[in-house]
Design a protein around this nucleic acid. Structure first.
Lengths: 148, 148
DNA sequence: ACAAATAAGTTGCAAATCAAAACCCACCCT
DNA sequence: AGGGTGGGTTTTGATTTGCAACTTATTTGT
């Protein structure tokens, strides 16, 4: 198998962000995740939707399966054609996608008419994220610091 | 200039996530951002902290400067030595870092004693993110859907 | 039932990107 | 003036990526 995305350095990762980026840190993986979460669950649909090379898509899907972010199941018992579906670990990435969308919406100079959004499926209205402490009190951005 | 991280396809990006990943979607960029936000603002300190190649670090810093995520300023007027500092656009990435940290903490099987965290600088306690609608009401993960 | 079309990859190869180390120049210190 | 250090650039080789063609299943149309 080629194109492993696993960490090349065997030393322990010191940082959760580093750990996350070992799996997610490339140009395609989070877009695959987005499409899987949108319900795009077939190889060719993913490939067409993303404009990704087929071999790279194969690698990414395989990495995502290995890390438990999606599952591969045959379209019908014993079939070779596969459906790719999100796991809870994949759903748990939705907050990451929301923060990325929010950041782009606020700071990108490319003003697009059609952004992708995450919405409350009940009300169809977009959601956002709030930074809160353990008591759910909101904390302003400027009051945060990063500990290593 | 080599190693551009800008999108190779001139067609408009259809998606905010795609837009964000054009800048942030590689193994190092968000780690550089993390370190800059931690106050690591010199080239050699960044290089040593991250274990990144010097030429790649140069590229990443240059990309981050071009996209307005950090500024480069001389240590003293007219000096060649530079300090790298976060802009508001960089601070705005903190929620992305928080969601990545949360995701790793909850789903990584590597149990590390020392994770990096984002904390409330007043109380020194870690913060997290809540998904909310426009009225700040929390929305459960399962109730979300992604619109394209 | 059979041919044509489509789905889901795999393979081979060229191009781009990344990484390690050596090199370079400006500054600082004494 | 000379040595050390900070901040990169260059060179060279290893990886990764992307494109296109190829293969094998599975459908679909007639």
């Amino acid at each position: 198998m080629t194109g492993q995305l696993t960490s090349s350095t065997p030393k322990t990762t010191h940082c959760a962000i580093e750990e996350a980026l070992t799996v997610l840190g490339d140009r395609w993986t989070l877009l695959v995740v987005r499409d899987i979460l949108r319900g795009v669950n077939r190889f060719d649909l993913l490939q067409e939707s993303l404009g990704i090379s087929r071999n790279i898509l194969t690698q990414r899907l395989s990495n995502l399966e290995e890390t438990g972010i999606l599952t591969k199941s045959p379209v019908k018992p014993n079939a070779k054609r596969m459906l790719y579906n999100p796991t809870p670990k994949c759903m748990a990435l939705i907050p990451v996608l929301i923060t990325l969308i929010d950041w782009s919406s606020n700071w990108s100079n490319a003003k697009e008419t059609q952004w992708s959004r995450v919405v409350d499926s009940k009300t169809k209205k977009p959601v956002t994220v709030a930074i809160v402490n353990q008591d759910q009190d909101p904390i302003p951005l400027g009051q945060l610091s990063i500990e290593f």
